[in-house]
Design a binder for these strands. Sequence first.
DNA 1: CCCCAGGGGACGAAATCGATG
DNA 2: TCATCGATTTCGTCCCCTGGG
Lengths: 338, 338
Amino acid sequence: MVLPPGGGARAPSMVDVAEQARVSHQTVSRVLNTPDAVRPATREKVERAMRELGYRRNATARALKTRRTGLIGVITPGHSAFGPNRMTLAVEEAAREHGFATALSVVRDSRPETVESSLEFFLDHGVDGIVVLAPIIAVAEAARQIAETRSVVLVASGAEPTASLDVVGIDQVRGAREAVRHLLDAGRRRIAHAAGPGEWYDARGRVQGWQETLSAAGVAEGPLLHCAGWTADDGYAAGAELAPQVASGVVDAVFAANDYIALGMMHAFADHGLSVPEDVAVVGFDDVDGAAHLSPPLTTVRQPFEAVGRAAIAELFGAGGGEHTTLIAPTLIRRATA
Amino acid sequence: MVLPPGGGARAPSMVDVAEQARVSHQTVSRVLNTPDAVRPATREKVERAMRELGYRRNATARALKTRRTGLIGVITPGHSAFGPNRMTLAVEEAAREHGFATALSVVRDSRPETVESSLEFFLDHGVDGIVVLAPIIAVAEAARQIAETRSVVLVASGAEPTASLDVVGIDQVRGAREAVRHLLDAGRRRIAHAAGPGEWYDARGRVQGWQETLSAAGVAEGPLLHCAGWTADDGYAAGAELAPQVASGVVDAVFAANDYIALGMMHAFADHGLSVPEDVAVVGFDDVDGAAHLSPPLTTVRQPFEAVGRAAIAELFGAGGGEHTTLIAPTLIRRATA
DNA sequence: CCCCAGGGGACGAAATCGATG
DNA sequence: TCATCGATTTCGTCCCCTGGG
């Protein structure tokens, strides 16, 4: 299937409609933009002509004159990670409710050039605003500079807003606090944390929440493991590393930075003959699909991704005007692992 | 952060560049489009002026004149399902390599009006081509009619191409055949299938592959369960329904329509004191993140989503010309459940 | 007649101003 | 004087045609 025939039948324009309705093209324009300024009889004539010709208003010409394309650019990370996808879809739906279309640009790595090239791409295409899904610090930093010249909303849990840039995110620290508090309430006192990659805002926020909660409760910090990524493989490695300390009673609970890490850890624990939650309690983060059906069903923290997507658009259209952070609270989901 | 100030500083145009370089705007245009037709000295003058003014070619005006927006529309289902997301990202990357931007439209339900409204939305915004990710039959059907007037590629595993519409998809039947053949090779003879929702192409293809393989092997079909959705909850219900037959030896294997269903079934089996793979072998479909770390690690069929995304764009730009299907083969991943 | 550059329209819609009753 | 409609210009780029060397 090839792209537009080029020499296909030209779509009808306002002038065509005007001729058909025996009015001027300006009247046609008015019917579209300020219908009340047109006499009902004339309006109906024009509307009938539009229907007969199958007229469709040309967004390109409109954009040229109004200096607005009606396009919102969304920069989204390339990992199959879970959150960004859902936020992207939520952003699209929210934007469409405002009559805006959403253009996508995937950023596979976090090099500044990559982000900048996506930004350039959007600027070339004349987007009216940009939403940057920036879970990684370097991505967010690369996005900052562009905020001087364009409306940008940064979706990053923990980034600082600036004068020309609003930030929307999920309160990672709070989610981590609830997770750790839940472990404390269950009587656990030797609580480890398997952290995500340090260049991620989410990972940092969860470490911070873990530390704060333990410190506030006067409980010593358990071991802090650093995972190289967010996958179950990384979790398995961390679990294997932690297993001896669980076996010897030095650790009786783990707060995992996400559900896949939790899953991998539980796998490693099982391989070491350790049982969850008897030997070690586990709390994850995300509430991925199927988390309720793991064995045992995973206690975790659910993130309201859809709400973030909507909030990002609201911020973009709102009268916020920068220097402002919207933080949305996640929810602890209690199941069987803790 | 608000949308463009409206009355902000106007971006420099070709005329501005022309003045700065003391040439005509037409020469500036030529430097951009046919650089070889401009004397090097003139060209450099113009390029310097562009840099000094921070000139950026206006895509809107260009689109108005050339009748091409450089936009590809992608219609994507709203479920957090796994495949569509990855395909969407792949489509975007492939499109960008061709210099095209990707606009998104999420379709939450499969009603024809919903799909049509997305199509209308794209038409209003003047996209040059449309990729419809249509896992559900009704969505694909709704997309067909639009193919008369616009370049459309349908991504649907099992849909029929028509004169003006190419189809790209993953060979579901083949994937299912490999899964079932693997179970047969392992000595299983009473093989059930937990099918996905019947309105999905993927679900139908997998049922077909299951039936064909059993029939070709002269083995009677095991029970066929119909899941209402693709989630682990649905799988759990199916597993609970099937457990008695597993316990009594009437069923010794299950081919699950996807990994989440497989996960839910395994959960149900465990709740009924059944063990995998001893009492019942399980094969899933998708190879979702973490499948390797389930207990036991899940044998499944991996789908090459990225390849499909790339193929869809190739088809859109290619000289295919409709009436043509591209089928990509999935891969069996052997692990511990079968 | 080749090489290079400029002038004058489109493209389709919207804004400004002016005309008409 | 107001409501209604029309003529003209503008947005920024690309294309056709012309002209000077």
